[in-house]
Computed example of a mutant assay.
Amino acid sequence: MTQHQTLPTEAETGYHYQVVRRAIDLIDQAEEPLSLDQIAAEMGMSAAHFQRLFSRWAGISPKRYQQYLTLGHAKTLLRERFTTLDASHAVGLSGSGRLHDLFVRWEAMSPGDFAREGAGLTIFWGWFESPFGPAIVMGTDKGICGMGFAAEMGEEAALTDLFSRWPKADFIEDPMMLRPWVVQAFGAGDGQIDTAPLFLIGAPFQIKVWEALLRIPSGQVTTYSEIAQAIGKPQAVRAVGTAVGRNPISWLIPCHRALRKSGGLGGYHWGLPMKRAMLAYEAVHAET
């Protein structure tokens, strides 16, 4: 297995996320809120150790974080942190210095180039530890073009998934080439917004949907129907959902912030526990 690149100040977050993921699964299955002792026991840790480790990842206590993972949290987000994209004129995002919203500089591949399925394109790739477990990151000389997470589906499946997006491209394993951008992407850089560009590879309709996703501020959410309205295709809600699901640069193009109008989470390509963890992580940091 290829060795993962570890980011400065994020050296242990992959392991921490595994603990968080197991806690999320436990919380999902519980009919009532769980005590710190109960969760820690299931994790095979003392309460003090679990609280310390968990708080280092989330920034708050397991009890408080558990509130963000309840089934009603998505509805709360829609009620209190809903973003109307039609009214959003700012292309840039305004997250805190720790989050990926520090940059939105991006360009898109031309439709003709996209139709060639990556032919003539060189894509560099590498594995990195992230706040959400192992992350596969891909990029061209123009910027990051792919990001996926392996905590739920496994590393081989995640790697194959992204390779299949551009089957005719030339792939070169070179994590050091990508590392400066990845450092920025996970909030470990110096906050310079021009060091982590994105290179969007998709059909014109998909690009419009992904651009709309970039306008959703951290800690807030929108709906698939709102995105359809924002791109001038109000009847294309299902197509919007498909484009959201095909977003190749997860986390950075924040498809996890798109919810169903009912308040349901909808799907998430890399696993619903991952989507819930990302939303909770952002909600926590939006309040700190």
Rank of each mutant, 00 (worst) to 15 (best):
L77E: 06
A74M: 02
A119F: 06
L34V: 11
L99Q: 09
A58R: 13
E32H: 07
R22T: 10
A47R: 14
Q67L: 03
R105T: 08
A74I: 03
F103W: 01
G72D: 12
L69N: 11
L26G: 06
R79M: 12
V19C: 02
V91T: 04
A47F: 02
A41D: 15
L71C: 03
M43R: 12
S46N: 13
G72L: 04
M43P: 01
A90W: 05
T84Q: 12
A41N: 12
G59P: 03
K75A: 09
E42Q: 08
L102V: 07
A87R: 09
D25N: 13
G112K: 09
S94L: 06
I27N: 08
R21L: 10
G59V: 09
R64E: 14
K75Q: 11
F114Y: 14
F103Q: 04
A48H: 00
M109N: 02
M109D: 08
A58Y: 06
M43D: 05
G59W: 06
S55D: 00
Q51C: 05
K63F: 02
R21D: 07
R81G: 05
G44N: 14
F50H: 14
D37M: 07
A58C: 06
R21C: 13
T83C: 12
A47Q: 03
A108W: 04
G120F: 07
Q38E: 15
K63G: 05
E107C: 09
T83R: 07
S55H: 00
L85D: 00
L69D: 15
F54E: 02
F54C: 08
S88R: 15
E42Y: 08
D25H: 11
L85N: 01
E107W: 01
V91Q: 01
Y68M: 11
G44V: 08
G44K: 13
T70Q: 12
A108K: 02
Q67D: 07
R21E: 14
F114G: 04
W57I: 10
L26F: 14
G72M: 07
Q66Y: 00
K75G: 03
H73K: 06
R52A: 01
T70G: 04
P62C: 06
S55P: 00
